[in-house]
């Protein structure tokens, strides 16, 4: 295993200490595993809390800050955090207006956040949960745990965060988050497996000329293996799967993310984005806003995901609203 670490067990603690050292505007409780905004937050603001397994950086800790999350709960690598963390985070950031929990749809995350929601409610804090499940690679939800939550998480956190910052109420913020999720679909392809520190070796072997299509962000193999294709063909396949979703029918403008899974260089992401842009244009879809980079990763996996969110002016205005976090920063 080729990684920069001290011991496999200490990776998360060391990384959180590094996050704290790098970002004075984050308040990182390394022992309790809670990352929150350091500065004062307007009283009465709806609080946003998210979290999930680590190994997806900058998600979620990198999205804590003005206009986005109030707190993040990092779990162990690829492991949902525990309810205690979520409770600690929620009680710490609640401003009396309630807390929205943003949860990616994985059994572990769902169960732990469900328990946390009960604990938070027991404290007399109003809670709403927004479930993110945007990955079209998982199709038949009666035979599976349902669609996975992946890239759309960034969109949900940004847009719900902007609305909360503007003073919207608890239900309004939660509804906006759910709406963004409903309008978003993602698809990912991996060129290599990733290596978790605990396993010490790649999760699967992939021949030099093959790729895994329809992967998630936890190093699991995808829906199928294919011969490695050109960027053009890969994007065509991903967009076909995404745009086949009824909810995206007739999309004329979109918020688009081309996201690296951790081991893919930016130059390749731009090659992919060029294809996405060209192919969407050919289908009458204008890219109104975009992100190209590493936002929701899978450790050192070489691969990329594409997320398309059907956008309207209101959604774009919230997207453009100021944000000030380690990983997203504009406006203000």
């Amino acid at each position: 295993m080729k990684k920069f670490l001290n011991t496999p067990e200490s990776v998360l603690g060391d990384a959180l200490a590094g996050l704290a050292a790098a970002h004075p505007r984050l308040d990182v409780d390394v022992a309790a595993r809670v990352v929150r905004r350091a500065g004062a937050v307007r009283a009465g603001k709806v609080a946003l809390v998210s979290g999930g397994g680590s190994g997806h950086e900058p998600l979620h800790g990198g999205f804590v800050g003005t206009g986005m999350l109030d707190a993040a709960c990092p779990g162990e690598i690829f492991t949902s955090p525990v309810p205690d963390q979520m409770l600690a985070a929620a009680t710490a950031v609640d401003q009396g207006a309630g807390v929205v929990l943003i949860v990616k749809n994985y059994t572990g995350d769902v169960l732990n956040f469900r328990m946390a929601a009960e604990l938070v409610a027991d404290e007399g804090i109003e809670v709403r949960t927004v479930l993110v499940d945007d990955d079209v690679a998982v199709t038949d939800s009666t035979w599976t745990a349902g669609r996975r939550g992946t890239g759309a998480t960034v969109f949900v956190e940004k847009i719900a965060g902007a609305l909360a910052e503007q003073g919207a109420g608890l239900d309004e913020v939660a509804a906006a988050g759910r709406r963004v999720n409903e309008l978003s679909r993602s698809f990912a392809v991996a060129l290599t497996a990733c290596t978790t520190p605990a396993a010490g070796k790649p999760g699967f072997d992939l021949p030099e000329d093959e790729m895994e299509v329809g992967v998630g962000i936890h190093g699991e193999p995808g829906r199928r293996r294919e011969k490695l294709g050109t960027a053009r063909r890969i994007v065509a396949e991903a967009l076909a799967a995404i745009l086949a979703e009824p909810v995206l029918a007739g999309t004329d403008q979109a918020l688009v993310m081309v996201n690296g899974l951790g081991g893919t260089p930016l130059i390749e992401l731009y090659v992919l984005f060029n294809e996405v842009s060209t192919q969407l244009a050919a289908q009458g879809v204008t890219i109104a806003r975009s992100l190209v980079g590493n936002y929701v990763t899978s450790l050192d996996m070489a691969g990329a995901s594409i997320t398309v969110c059907r956008a309207d002016e209101q959604l774009l205005a919230l997207w453009d609203a100021p944000v000030d976090t380690p990983a997203l920063r504009w406006g203000g």
Partner: peptide, 10 residues
């Protein structure tokens, strides 16, 4: 529940 996380913890 307080220490495992994931699906198996709950």
């Amino acid at each position: 529940i307080s220490s495992v996380g994931g699906a198996s913890g709950p």
